[in-house]
């Protein structure tokens, strides 16, 4: 009789030990899900993927201005969750590949409280994204506007002359999102990874 009892007790202890181990695995895997976030950011940083909110390198591209070609650049402005107005002063411009160009946008906070926004660019056609090099952009930083404040913000860009000849028009669309709560400073210190999300989703 006692042997049956002791076998049972020994088994229960073994079961409990295994239970604890499996619970540890569960906890580790929960943490693993969160660890994927910095892991992917690191991968994007190392491989140079998704650098949408950082200045592009223009040193590597052909600096020869291709006067034979003109590319129409159309600017589109959108607002999501912000009581601001946001418009492009130019509406559209025409540039030659390799030529440095500046465009100015105007944002205005019509509400009665200070608000912070972040602009996210996207491109149409999506293929144009990798040939559109932004040297300076208001989308590299968050914009904070006081009540009633109006601000003019620039984008300085070059279109790479390697742009496929089938593309004659590029639409650059910015959407301003409200930034609230604790945010990573977009585009400044952290490698930001939004290209595919903003462009394709």
């Amino acid at each position: 009789m006692s042997t049956v009892a002791s076998v049972r007790l020994a088994r229960a202890a073994g079961n409990r030990q295994l239970l604890v181990r499996l619970l540890v695995v569960t906890a580790v895997m929960f943490g693993f899900g969160f660890a994927l976030v910095p892991f992917y950011e690191k991968i994007c940083q190392v491989t140079g993927l998704r650098s949408l909110l950082q200045p592009d390198h223009v040193g590597s591209i052909n600096s020869q201005i291709d006067y034979a070609r003109s590319i129409a650049i159309e600017f589109d402005t959108n607002m999501r969750g912000l009581p601001w107005t946001f418009r492009s002063l130019e509406g559209h411009v025409s540039v030659h590949p390799g030529e440095m160009q500046q465009a100015v946008f105007e944002i205005h906070n019509g509400s009665n409280r200070p608000l912070t926004g972040q602009a996210i660019p996207s491109y149409g056609p999506a293929l144009a994204a990798e040939y559109f090099r932004k040297v300076e952009c208001f989308c590299f930083t968050q914009q904070t506007l006081q009540p009633g404040e109006t601000r003019q913000v620039p984008v300085v860009f070059v279109v790479d002359s390697a742009l496929p000849s089938s593309i004659a028009t590029i639409t650059l669309s910015f959407t301003f999102f409200e930034v609230n709560g604790a945010q990573a400073p977009a585009g400044v210190s952290t490698p930001v990874s939004v290209k595919a999300g903003a462009v394709r989703s």
Partner: peptide, 21 residues
């Protein structure tokens, strides 16, 4: 609800990362 930006592009997150996870 708590102002994080794991997948929120405006705060520096990435919607595509949600798909990976």
């Amino acid at each position: 609800h708590f102002g994080t930006s794991f997948f929120n592009a405006a705060g520096g997150g990435d919607p595509v990362m949600y798909q990976h996870v």
